[in-house]
Simulated scan of single mutants.
Amino acid sequence: MRNTWPARLLESPAVRVGLSVSVATGLYGVSFGALSITSGLDFWQTMALSLLLFSGGPQFAFIGVVAGGGSGLAAMGAATLLGMRNGIYGMQLNVLLHPKGWRRYAAAQLTIDESTATSTGQTDPAEQQRGFWAAGIGIFVLWNIFTAVGALAGGALGDPKQWGLDGAAVAAFLGLLWPRLKGREPVAIAVVCALATVLAVPFVPAGVPILIAAVVAALIGWFSHGPRDEGLEPDIDPYTEHHHGPHRQSGSVGGSGA
């Protein structure tokens, strides 16, 4: 077989890891698409979230607030708070990858947990570049394809309350969040924030409790300093099985994906 450039590219360890992570993470899009439709958004609103926001955890938070009857402003606030970590990743990757021209804008859109983890898990600068773009582009394409599949499937379900799906978006977000907590302090903070949310629900409009919980978490973080290796893990750790070299740097601060 001729040694063409696609074949040579697939010989890259970072590309292979990035593509495998893309499939695993992209499949989450089915859940997001279906839950978004059952939460009250239409097909194009759902696709706009995946195309433009493109960050799994914040997307689930957005539709969770909407499903709970919260305002669009509250949903945006919740998504923004969870998406701030991508800005921190962006500063790290800007130093690591030095994107130029239009690639800076593309890289900003593709900076998520998994693309950051795939890139920083490599020691060779060229492999860092390949890993970032392979994971970022692969997840973006598959996440949006599977979002569309899920949205079409969700639209066929009808009234979400008939199936008990009106609370499914919140449950899905919690299902993604809980396994990613690493260390006793983040677990304790999550429990305190959950309690603050429950106590606030009867007294404030829908969507506001999650903002209150975020303030509580920020205050706890401000006054306490846990071990530096504690925090949140990415949705998919690309080096659990596929890579035996130096691990990526911790993705602290906080989808799907995404």
Rank of each mutant, 00 (worst) to 15 (best):
M1Y: 06
R2M: 07
T4R: 01
W5R: 13
P6M: 11
L9N: 10
L10M: 15
E11Q: 15
S12A: 10
G18Q: 04
S20V: 14
S20T: 11
S20Q: 13
S22K: 03
T25L: 11
S31T: 14
S36H: 06
I37F: 05
S39C: 08
S50W: 00
S55K: 05
P58R: 01
F60E: 01
V65C: 01
V65G: 00
G70L: 01
G70Q: 00
S71H: 02
S71C: 02
A74D: 03
T80C: 04
I88M: 14
Y89W: 04
L93E: 04
L96D: 12
L97N: 02
I112N: 08
D113L: 08
A117K: 07
S119T: 08
G121R: 11
Q122V: 10
R130N: 15
R130H: 14
G131Y: 01
W133R: 05
A135M: 04
A135T: 10
I139H: 01
L142A: 09
F146S: 10
A148C: 10
L152S: 09
L152R: 01
G154V: 12
A156R: 06
L157W: 07
G158K: 02
K161N: 13
Q162P: 03
G167P: 00
G167N: 07
A169K: 00
A169W: 02
L176V: 06
R180Q: 15
K182F: 11
R184C: 06
P186H: 09
L195W: 06
A196L: 11
L199R: 03
A200P: 04
V201F: 00
V201M: 09
V215G: 06
V216M: 07
A217R: 06
I220W: 09
G221V: 12
S224M: 12
P227R: 12
R228E: 15
D229I: 04
G231I: 13
L232Y: 12
D235A: 15
Y239P: 08
Y239A: 15
E241S: 10
H242Y: 11
H243I: 13
H243W: 14
H244K: 12
S250H: 13
G254A: 14
